[in-house]
Design a protein around this nucleic acid. Structure first.
Lengths: 241, 241
DNA sequence: GCCGATTTGTCCGTATGTATC
DNA sequence: CGATACATACGGACAAATCGG
């Protein structure tokens, strides 16, 4: 069931680029010819191409054309860059994922936690500690705070599978956007315990803190993900306005 | 000299949001009323709003309206998230910046360097080592590789000021996009020397590797920025498609 | 639950401007 | 200079989601 035309065109072009239909630095067919092939309007096609620009796949040049600047990223243990779950991301990389739930409890946000998470004081949340394994190697320690009233019926069992799958399929919640901050922090005792880090080797972890909003505009999740530094990569493409 | 209407509207709305014209979680005026106030077409207005969505400033909800979800970020030593120079960024944060050029030389890319940088073997580049200070504190060690033929006339003196200012104002080059990868790496001898790091404290640095393209579609720069972990922050906003 | 008004989302056609070749 | 290609802007039409009566 196709949702929108521009999305279909975007996906089609994206796949063509990934399959090396166009070689690196080659110009794509012009807007007009793509309009012909897809039988759509100019705006619609431009919208699709705009998404590719954001992805860093192509570069548009006024008067010249659209240049393919896609280079397949070298194989890597773990990549981010969009909102995607651990399960999705590991499946995409063809690896074997497993999640261990170390803690599942309710919590009433205190003043200090309110400052960190962005939840109001005295809010009731589920606090979950999870460790994500990839090919039997512990890579990430996750500290999740979910607004209780926004995620009713969440259980430890669900947390062991995929929370987002539950939210989207069962609760029909739509995740819209996620603000993230990347930092580097000293290893804590918890990190050391679960990530099996030798502090003579690395004494830091890569930390991604995120606030996630649903389609009702409520921030329903604060998560701190603490990554093994040697398996952490964060891809990004910046476009100068 | 205003460039485009949608950009002006975007900047105006952005500023209004930053100045708390709308409170957190409040709905902005509807599209129709904004069209009236700006006297523009619907598409133009929607384009401006779309940029705010990408910035994580607002969230659009079909049938409801546009909600302000901007929260001013706590004061921080150094932030990235767009293409901006060290000079711009430090000025924005109201701090005193200084750049020391430790090395300025020409280099012929060998096989190993080709793999790292993405430049072809035997390419001639300028290789520059720079240390960025903020309020007399060394924060970043930069390893720049600039394609020589793309940046003629680059000197050590320019490198001490702002290379990008030179590229844009003197050479009239337009920087278009920049692919970046964030990782965490062990401290090297060079890092230790220049960043005055105590390895008992932190033995890692935050590394941002970037490939930058100009409007001719040439990758003219590869840079590896090695940041003091305690002053490093990377902001990002992901929008689910 | 239905209906109409409001609001955002998608799509189209067209006109004009600007950069490149 | 003209042809080509992307960039901006406008106006209109219909769809989908929301909300209030």
């Amino acid at each position: 069931m196709p949702k929108s035309i521009y999305e279909d065109i975007y996906k089609d072009l994206k796949q063509k680029i990934e399959n090396n239909t166009f070689s690196y630095q080659e110009l794509l067919p012009s807007e007009n010819s793509l309009i012909q092939t897809y039988g759509c309007s100019r705006n619609t096609l431009r919208r699709a191409v705009g998404l590719l620009v954001n992805d860093g796949y192509v570069q548009t040049m006024q008067g010249k054309g659209v240049r393919n600047i896609y280079q397949p990223s070298e194989q890597t243990a773990f990549t981010i860059g969009e909102i995607e779950t651990f399960k999705e991301s590991s499946a995409r990389n063809g690896q074997n994922a497993y999640t261990h739930v170390a803690l599942f409890t309710e919590l009433c946000i205190n003043k200090k936690q309110a400052e960190i998470t962005g939840f109001a004081e005295n809010t009731i949340v589920y606090y979950i500690q999870r460790i994500h394994y990839l090919d039997d190697k512990p890579l990430i320690v996750n500290h999740n705070y979910f607004l209780k009233e926004a995620v009713p019926g969440l259980t430890k069992e669900i947390a062991g599978e995929s929370i987002y799958e539950y939210l989207e399929k069962e609760l029909h919640m739509t995740i819209v956007n996620s603000k993230r901050i990347m930092t580097v922090e000293k290893v804590t005792e918890i990190d050391e315990k679960y990530l099996q880090l030798n502090t003579n080797d690395y004494n830091c972890v890569a930390v991604v803190s995120s606030q996630t909003y649903n389609s009702d505009g409520v921030m329903f999740e604060y998560t701190q993900s603490r990554h093994r530094p040697d398996y952490f990569r964060f891809y990004d493409n910046a476009v100068r306005k």
